[in-house]
Amino acid sequence: MAIITVQRPKLAWHEKAFISTLFKGLKITLSHALRTFLQIAGKKPKVTMEYPEQKWDDQLPDYYRGAPALVTDEHERERCVSCQLCEFICPPKAITITPGEIPSDDPWAKVEKRPKEFEIDMIRCIYCGMCEEVCPEQAIFLRKDYAITGLSRKEMVHDKKRLYEIGGQRVGLVNKWNELK
């Protein structure tokens, strides 16, 4: 490998004594200050986005990992079969599932199980997406909701109702329990 000798820049005396360089620096900072100040005074900061008023939600990429949520399919069926794989894989142990049985007179009786209760503690959740990855039923997805707030710890625990509310209905997934398949 060739050795490249980098020459130190030859400085004039006024540059060595910080005289001209001082003014050069001040000119740079002042020009930035003036430009940004005029932008702010004109209420149009070009770089900064004023968060709660301005959002970038429509620019979020498809792979964005927001709050995990449960989804239903075209037939309003809960896709989750409460296999609890997500509960076991969840690194911060944020998910708690209480499995329940589907009664035999239900049209989806052969699925056998659905969650009686499904809780995700959003204080613990680290938005890693493991639950989505591990789910064999394509029932849990990370949505694009990111501003999960609450005034108490209890409020921050998403229960089943809330999870389906966020998740909503998802079509076009593999329907392995569908008779018509």
Binding site: T29, L30, H32, A33, L34, R35, T36, F37, I40, P45, V47, T48, E50
Partner: peptide, 13 residues
């Protein structure tokens, strides 16, 4: 505020 505009930020507003 001044440091903010120097660095192209908005600062406490």
């Amino acid at each position: 505020r001044f440091s903010a505009v120097i660095q192209d930020r908005v600062g406490p507003n």
